[in-house]
């Protein structure tokens, strides 16, 4: 059955259809959440939040955009909420690195680099992190990213340009 049919049924209150939808899309949710958070535990939390939000929010889906881009927006919102709640009891970067390190012992350098990059992206202004992740991690075009985030395509291009500039000044040119 197509997603659209499932969504219509779920919006009408069919729990079975909703479960199938979840089953289908959880992996995408989790993977994107993982890219946002950089570690499994947090990613699972965010994905879980997203599923719960989906339960209430699904009926607001109006088929104006594609379902998957709508989902991306949902995860981004959840991830941001999660991040806000995290600032209250923030881990130290050291712990995070240790955690990442134990998870992927064979390539510690790269993991640390990714963690640093994610931390860096957090410090950028609103909208930057999701733009980078959608364009660079998920491989969307600027146009697609623009639809997902509900902004103009030129805004995305500008953000990407801006991020590149900022990263360059922060990480420097050496071996990156």
């Amino acid at each position: 059955m197509q997603d659209d049919d499932l969504i219509k049924q779920a919006q009408a209150g069919d729990a079975q259809a909703f479960e199938t939808l979840l089953e289908r899309h959880y992996d995408t949710l989790f993977k994107f959440a993982f890219k946002w958070c950089g570690n499994r535990e947090d990613a699972e939390d965010v994905a879980q939040q997203a599923c719960i939000k989906l339960a209430r929010g699904l009926e607001q889906f109006r088929f104006e955009s594609s379902f998957s881009s709508w989902l991306y927006r949902l995860v981004i919102n959840c991830a941001k909420d999660w991040q806000k709640s995290q600032t209250r009891h923030q881990h130290t970067t050291e712990q995070e690195i240790a955690l990442v390190d134990t998870l992927h012992d064979e390539q510690p350098d790269k993991k640390i680099l990714i963690q640093q990059l994610l931390n860096r992206l957090d410090s950028f202004s609103e909208g930057m992190k999701e733009t980078v992740l959608l364009v660079h991690a998920e491989g969307f075009t600027h146009g697609e990213a623009a639809t997902i985030l509900g902004v103009k395509e030129s805004t995305i291009s500008w953000r990407i340009h801006e991020i590149r500039k900022q990263l360059q000044s922060m990480f420097g040119q050496e071996d990156l």
Partner: peptide
């Protein structure tokens, strides 16, 4: 480099328990 770093970031396999937990919660909410 960015593409390389981020798209290559190997996501861990999906934990079935976590998935089930999330789904159960969502179903309950639904």
């Amino acid at each position: 480099k960015l593409n390389d770093l981020l798209s290559d970031m190997d996501t861990p396999p999906i934990d079935k328990n976590a998935k089930k937990r999330a789904m159960n919660l969502a179903m309950a909410e639904f």
